[in-house]
Design a protein around this nucleic acid. Structure first.
Length: 449
DNA sequence: CAAGGTATCA
């Protein structure tokens, strides 16, 4: 094709740009768009393919630049180019930009179509903007753009992200009356909504409903249902679902196993968690960072701090780099095992491992100090948080408060309590109980004055 | 030759 005798034409360039997009090579896609100019002017499809390439590589600014440069290149943006730009905003979590593009379409003399709305609904869904997503769905109906299965699934997903189970189920139930056929994706989104609220019963009902309607669940459906059982405290049911997958001819993947390992965590079933981890290679699955993090947490919840640290130490040979979640889970494991020195050691190793601790990491470390009776260290960690650009939250304050209480530091406890309002943290029962207890201990031991 | 929906870890 690049033989000088046969010049590539627009079609071959467009195909190449599209292929770069599928391989997440956005720079190469843009490079092709540039080199294309030497033989002929890129057309609307070239731009659409390039915008889509940027979208697939999460380069939303580049996508918007391309879209915005079309009129200057004597090209009228099409529905497709605009929809690709909306998708780029969606992938990057820029729901306001997605809505802005949708609303600017009429000025550009492009009528938004079903795909424009669906992409915008998805953008809102990803960011938990369920009210906006639902209003877009209503707008679609109002302007006689009949929402389809994808519109509904995206809207259900917005309710899922927003924790609105009832609304999610309501939308699912409206599909058939609207002559739409719910599929595995619509059901998976609804099951996920149940999972977020721990409604395992609802999730299993939806699975049953699927079999009545002859809708084949897929691996995502099962993974979501396993998570629903996990969140609902039904770890046995979660594992039952995993074991039922072969006869349903659904092949579990890494995510399914990760969800199942997570279910073992809540049940303090570290043996089962490690067993699942060990079964993965023979099922041709490669455990990833999330798998290890879930297994480390399972050990943590079971009080197996040594095993948790062993798992963490095995990550490099599995070519996995621990992240802040790994460290936080491992620090929590040390906390549960009364190993405050090891917990602090892990925290101190983070900078050289180029892992940035977050609030949760500090909270775990402060709790470890509290359990180890190290109120001074808890105070030191608390005071280090602003330097690390971290804002202590309710959990941080409560952990520090308990540390002061255990250490008989009633003045510090009361001082901390008094600082909470200006830090914008509302003390709760745990906070007050710890503070009161600190004072009672002081009074009982006569150290009040 | 271009555009839209589902699941996992502290």
């Amino acid at each position: 094709m690049f033989d000088r005798r046969v010049a590539p034409n627009a079609i071959s360039y467009n195909a190449a740009i599209s292929a770069m997009g599928k391989g997440s090579r956005w720079q190469l896609a843009l490079h092709l768009l540039t080199t294309m100019r030497m033989s002929e002017a890129p057309n609307v499809r070239s731009y659409s393919a390039a915008i889509s390439a940027c979208e697939k590589s999460s380069q939303w600014q580049a996508a918007l630049c391309l879209f915005g440069s079309m009129p200057g290149n004597a090209l009228m943006p099409s529905e497709v180019s605009c929809n690709a730009a909306i998708s780029a905003c969606e992938k990057a979590g820029q729901w306001q930009f997605a809505l802005g593009l949708l609303s600017s379409m009429p000025e550009l003399r492009i009528a938004p179509d079903r795909i424009s709305y669906n992409a915008a609904i998805s953008a809102c869904a990803k960011e938990g903007q369920w009210q906006v997503a639902l209003s877009l769905l209503n707008t679609m109906q109002a302007i006689i753009l009949k929402p389809d299965e994808i519109s509904y699934s995206a809207a259900i997903s917005s309710c899922d992200q927003g924790g609105q189970v009832e609304l999610a189920l309501g939308l699912l139930n409206k599909m058939i009356p609207n002559n739409l056929r719910p599929d595995a994706i619509s059901y998976s989104a609804a099951i996920s909504a149940c999972a977020k609220r721990g409604q395992w019963h609802g999730a299993l009902s939806l699975l049953r409903e699927m079999s009545e309607l002859r809708i084949e669940p897929n691996v995502v459906t099962y993974s979501a249902a396993i998570t629903a059982c996990d969140q609902g405290g039904q770890w046995q049911l979660a594992l039952d679902l995993l074991s039922l997958m072969p006869e349903a001819r659904v092949v579990p993947n890494e995510i399914t196993y990760n969800a199942a390992i997570s279910a073992c965590e809540k049940a303090s079933q570290w043996q089962l968690a490690l067993n699942l981890l060990s079964l993965m290679p023979e099922a041709r699955m490669v455990p990833n960072k999330i798998t290890y993090n879930a297994a480390i947490s399972a050990c943590e919840k079971s009080g197996e701090w040594q095993l948790a640290l062993t798992l963490m130490s095995l990550m490099p040979e599995a070519m996995l780099v621990p992240n802040e979640i790994t460290y936080s889970a491992a620090i929590s494991a040390c906390e549960k095992g009364g190993q405050w020195q090891l917990a602090l050691n892990l925290l101190s190793l983070m900078p050289e491992a180029r892992v940035v601790p977050n609030e949760i990491t500090y909270n775990a470390a402060i709790s470890a100090c509290e359990k180890g009776g190290q109120w001074q260290l808890a105070l030191t960690l608390l005071s280090m948080m602003p330097d690390a650009m971290l804002v202590p939250n309710e959990i941080t304050y409560n952990a520090a408060m308990s540390a002061f209480e255990k250490g008989g530091q009633w003045q510090l406890a009361l001082n901390l309590l008094s600082l909470m309002p200006e830090a914008g943290v509302v003390p709760n029962d745990i906070t007050f109980n710890a503070a009161i207890s600190a004072c009672e201990r002081a009074a009982a031991s006569g150290s009040w004055y």
